[in-house]
Amino acid sequence: MVDHVQKHHFALSEAPFYCSFCLFRCSTREALEKHVIDYRRHALMSAMQGGGDQSTFLIENPHPRVV
């Protein structure tokens, strides 16, 4: 339930972790890293931007909203 609320009812700026590329939101760093591995479009986007590190899309909010 907490994950659902964070993904669908919080603003991006309120989520504990999010992907700035596709706006995916989650509650753990592990879920965010798995998300990037599971979706190849992140690798493609990274390659188009010069082959940079995919972790540049991964954002940890220092002051997330608590459910």
Rank of each mutant, 00 (worst) to 15 (best):
M1W: 10
V2K: 15
D3S: 10
D3Y: 05
D3L: 03
H4S: 08
V5A: 15
H9P: 00
H9K: 15
H9V: 04
F10S: 11
F10I: 00
F10A: 06
A11V: 01
L12G: 03
S13E: 11
E14K: 03
A15N: 07
A15F: 01
A15E: 06
C19Y: 03
L23M: 11
R25F: 01
R25W: 05
C26T: 13
S27V: 07
S27K: 14
T28C: 11
R29G: 01
A31E: 11
A31K: 07
L32D: 05
L32S: 09
K34P: 02
H35S: 03
V36I: 13
V36F: 08
V36G: 08
D38T: 12
D38I: 06
Y39C: 08
Y39T: 13
R40Y: 08
R40T: 10
R41M: 14
R41L: 10
H42K: 02
H42V: 06
H42S: 00
A43V: 12
A43C: 04
L44M: 13
M45H: 15
M45R: 15
S46P: 09
S46Q: 12
S46F: 10
S46H: 04
S46L: 05
M48N: 07
M48P: 00
Q49N: 12
Q49A: 11
G50C: 12
G50H: 03
G51N: 03
G51K: 03
G52K: 01
D53V: 07
Q54I: 12
S55K: 14
S55L: 13
S55N: 11
S55H: 12
T56A: 10
T56V: 14
F57D: 02
L58D: 00
L58F: 06
I59Q: 02
I59H: 09
E60G: 10
N61M: 08
P62T: 14
P62S: 09
P62C: 03
H63P: 09
P64Y: 06
P64L: 05
P64K: 10
P64V: 05
V66Y: 10
V66A: 11
V67R: 05
V67K: 12
